[in-house]
């Protein structure tokens, strides 16, 4: 029994699902791209004056990327739910296959397919005028944060995937996550928000992550935000992993 070998085999299996229906990657990218178009070309002119930024595409891209990840992980919940319902997980558990590889195969798939969606969005942003003066190390750090965020939300998605009673229940958890960037510093500065909303916006994870990404891609100093961002990502990963494993033991 070999966790790594089984994970790779099962990863290839669910990547083949994506190959057979690439629309799962397109649909993940399409909504964030639409919102990006809407924000830049409809509201952008008005927002620009209040943010004081000269390149609004640069300003809102990090929030759009997080939104894409939040909707992308819903597919992980969906795929695990289907595997549970169709008895595929039971079949794998009755075989000489590593139990944790069954979940890791899905988690790996999520990391790769979300990365592809992010690249599509990124290309569209480039066409829309995204420019960066960041150095390679800053780029790598930004990619690392996006990957950690994906990992955290993916493990969160495993929980409803294993426990939901219906498809809607399996993927419904992602809706609030998709909207989190709207109540954060992702698209407008938090300073103009009413006190209560502002308090929430400034202390929820998306703001710290968005600020870090924005600073990294803008070639600026990141400050303490990056530690808050990392703490959130790692904290959520550990928390979600613990509850996912607990749910998995009951399967």
């Amino acid at each position: 029994m070999n966790v790594l070998r089984d994970t790779v085999i099962l990863f290839k299996r669910s990547m083949r699902h994506i190959q057979h229906s690439p629309d799962t990657i397109i649909t993940v990218a399409i909504i964030p791209i639409m919102i990006m178009l809407l924000l830049v070309y409809v509201y952008g002119g008005a927002i620009k004056t209040s943010t004081g930024t000269d390149n609004y595409v640069n300003y809102m891209l990090p929030g759009i990327l997080l939104m894409s990840i939040a909707s992308g992980v819903a597919y992980t919940a969906y795929r695990i739910f289907l595997d549970m319902q169709k008895g595929i997980i039971a079949r794998l558990h009755s075989m000489p296959v590593s139990r944790s590889a069954v979940l890791w195969g899905h988690v790996m798939t999520s990391l790769v397919s979300n990365a592809i969606s992010l690249m599509i969005i990124f290309l569209v942003a480039l066409v829309m005028g995204f420019r960066s003066s960041a150095e390679l190390t800053a780029w790598l750090a930004a990619a690392g944060i996006l990957m950690l965020f994906t990992l955290a939300l993916t493990w969160l998605a495993v929980i409803p995937g294993l426990t939901a009673k219906s498809i809607e229940g399996a993927s419904g958890f992602s809706y609030p996550l998709i909207f989190l960037p709207f109540i954060s510093s992702a698209f407008v500065p938090t300073a103009t928000m009413p006190a209560l909303v502002r308090a929430f916006a400034e202390n929820q994870p998306v703001t710290a992550i968005v600020n870090s990404l924005r600073a990294l891609l803008g070639g600026q100093a990141v400050g303490s935000d990056i530690w808050t961002a990392l703490a959130w990502c790692i904290g959520v990963t550990i928390f979600a992993y613990f509850f996912a494993m607990r749910a998995y033991k009951r399967v």
């Binding site: 169709k86 039971a90 079949r91």
Partner: peptide, 16 residues
């Protein structure tokens, strides 16, 4: 698990 094979009540086939 090395000795057995299970064909459950609902065909556990990957439809995709």
């Amino acid at each position: 698990r090395e000795q057995i094979s299970l064909t459950g009540q609902f065909a556990a086939v990957d439809g995709m």
